[in-house]
Design a protein around this nucleic acid. Structure first.
Lengths: 166, 166
DNA sequence: ACAAATTTTCAGAAATAATTGAAAGTTTAA
DNA sequence: TTAAACTTTCAATTATTTCTGAAAATTTGT
């Protein structure tokens, strides 16, 4: 079966991409695997295909559920848990944006807000404040765009993307 | 001096943010330090403020220069190298986007293109190809937006951002 | 050409992150 | 209930990344 090699290539690539963006490689690979699987997969299926331990598989499946990227599926007559991924890539991108905004951007923004509110008036503090202010303004703009994006639907996204790319 | 504590808080936060996005913590901290320094700094200055070794400092300064985020500055009468950061946060964001696109998005896109060109015709391959296709289309759209963004200037960016956020 | 000042390199050490696997916990069917 | 089927947890191990520091290389002033 040729397709297996292609599937492997895909989840290897997705794993590398993920780890360059601060996401655990295995998590990204499991996600890739489910993303291109027609049918739901069990923990065993995943362990076998990716050659990883039960513990590792379980932990990363939980993480993917936390992110909202995959879901449990119960098959009648089967006791094992089956997992399916959200397949719509636009929706996937919104889910990822949501989590990263929450986990990384928001805490950074909080610190910038804190630093911005300094009341010192000597020259050095003023300069520092001014630079922080620019960083803050930029970051909160990114934050609000992300927010818009997360709450939007696919057709809005497509419209905006087309507008920008034109 | 109060400001020092604030400066420290800033580069700690920036370092954490960086490492969550696949950028070496020290690199992000040096960048933060230079970003809010009025004057250029030497390797010694940085080693001292961040409490890191000469080798580490040197490597990360090179990396920051590769990214185009900082530059050498020669001071008359001084033999040591001094470094200054690009201060305009809009420009900084374009430089970061450029590097990440080049280093991570482009290689991923190349693999997707490869997988997309499979000629197999059995049902499973067709399904696989269809899903890859969607991922590819989304990714190349992101890629072209990033390209536009990188080549744009600040006022274009502000206009687009305002349009989206409205 | 020399030597002091400075920068670069990189093998080994240290720190951090991911993974395993087996024991403990939970669920379910009879 | 009980026990088999299955999932979860987490201490210990393994892998990966980052950092150090001293030696080598380079640059510059005399």
């Amino acid at each position: 079966m040729e397709t297996n090699q292609h599937v492997e290539k895909f989840y290897q690539a997705w794993g590398t991409l993920g780890s360059n963006w601060g996401i655990n490689k295995t998590m990204a690979q499991i996600h890739a695997l489910l993303l291109i699987s027609e049918n739901s997969l069990t923990t065993e299926d995943i362990m076998e295909k990716l050659n990883i331990s039960r513990g590792n598989t379980n932990m990363n499946l939980r993480a993917l559920m936390d992110w909202g990227l995959i879901q449990k599926e119960h098959k009648k007559g089967e006791r094992k848990e089956h997992f399916v991924a959200e397949k719509d890539i636009w929706k996937v991108s919104r889910l990822i944006a949501r989590e990263r905004r929450k986990r990384e951007l928001e805490p950074a923004l909080k610190i910038l807000e804190e630093l911005r509110s300094i009341k010192d008036t000597d020259a050095e503090s003023k300069r520092f404040k001014k630079q922080i202010d620019e960083v803050y303004k930029f970051t909160s703009m990114v934050d609000s765009i992300l927010d818009k994006f997360i709450k939007s639907n696919t057709s809005w996204m497509m419209k905006i993307f087309a507008y920008i790319a034109k």
